[in-house]
């Protein structure tokens, strides 16, 4: 169990003359063994923040700390792992599921041990261990996302970043992946930064939530507080936009239309 801390992190793209600040002085803590939800619209910088943490985006200023130490960005041991949004592009189509999962494993163990570990991880994410030999093309979207989770876990991460991992999936499959995230978090005591644009999803998996808007965090706190008594306008707007959560008279104008006709 480890704590991930973003300390006044700024990420800038573009040239020095025309800089574009994607993340603007964000401070955020993912406490050890907790799930923190990060919500915001597309372009708000939430994915960029995640990519900066794992070294896929350049940090302009500020620090990203894991248990007080800077996150290692070089070498074979990466205590921070990420699961990507689109399970159709996050697995190499030419590598078997087993090979993909074995990739982030720290060096050392023998081939047989690795194979056993792959089997263990597959059953951990409720996939049939024989899937280790299959190519991703054979798997459904939900199964691929499970495999992607297993790969992230293979790196023996202290913190996992899940970037919109359900938004490319059908809602019927989304539920299964969310169940799995909760189960893994409970069993393994993982710290997770869970990025989503859907507040209902975040409410279901996270204990804390941070709301990002135009590169800045505008509100953060325990889910029970932020979602019940939002203080920032944008949070209120997000809350109002969750399907099925609208105030009742406005909720079904269809019903009034029907009764009047």
């Amino acid at each position: 169990m480890s704590e991930l801390r973003f300390d006044d992190v700024t990420v800038r793209y573009g040239t020095a003359r025309r800089p574009f600040t994607a993340v603007d002085g964000v401070s955020l803590t993912v406490p050890a063994g907790q799930v923190v939800g990060l919500v915001g619209e597309s372009g708000s910088g939430k994915s960029t923040l995640a990519r900066a943490a794992v070294g896929l985006a350049p940090v302009h200023s500020g620090q990203i700390l894991l248990d007080g130490e800077p996150v290692p960005r070089r070498g074979r041991v990466r205590p921070l792992q990420m699961v990507f949004q689109d399970p159709f592009s996050s697995l190499d189509p030419r590598m078997t599921i087993g090979e993909s999962i074995a990739e982030p494993m720290p060096p050392g163990p023998s081939r047989a041990e690795r194979k056993r570990e792959v089997q263990r991880l597959l059953s951990l994410v409720h996939l049939d261990p024989v899937m280790a030999g299959a190519l991703p093309g054979r798997l459904s979207g939900g199964q691929r996302q499970r495999a992607a989770l297993a790969r992230a876990l293979a790196g023996q991460p202290k913190v996992v970043i899940a970037d919109e991992i359900t938004s490319a999936l059908d809602v019927s499959i989304q539920g299964a992946v969310l169940n799995l995230v909760r189960e893994l978090q409970r069993e393994l005591g993982l710290s997770i930064l869970f990025i989503s644009h859907n507040l209902a999803v975040v409410r279901y998996v996270a204990s804390h939530v941070a709301v990002m808007y135009q590169g800045q965090i505008v509100e953060q706190g325990p889910v029970s507080e932020v979602l019940v008594a939002p203080r920032h306008d944008y949070t209120r707007e997000l809350l109002a936009a969750v399907p099925g959560s609208r105030p009742s008279p406005q909720a079904h104008p269809a019903a009034t239309a029907r009764s009047s006709s």
Partner: peptide, 13 residues
């Protein structure tokens, strides 16, 4: 630019 290459980089490859 695909995610599986990003994933490999994150994995320290």
């Amino acid at each position: 630019s695909l995610d599986y290459v990003s994933a490999a980089r994150v994995a320290g490859v």
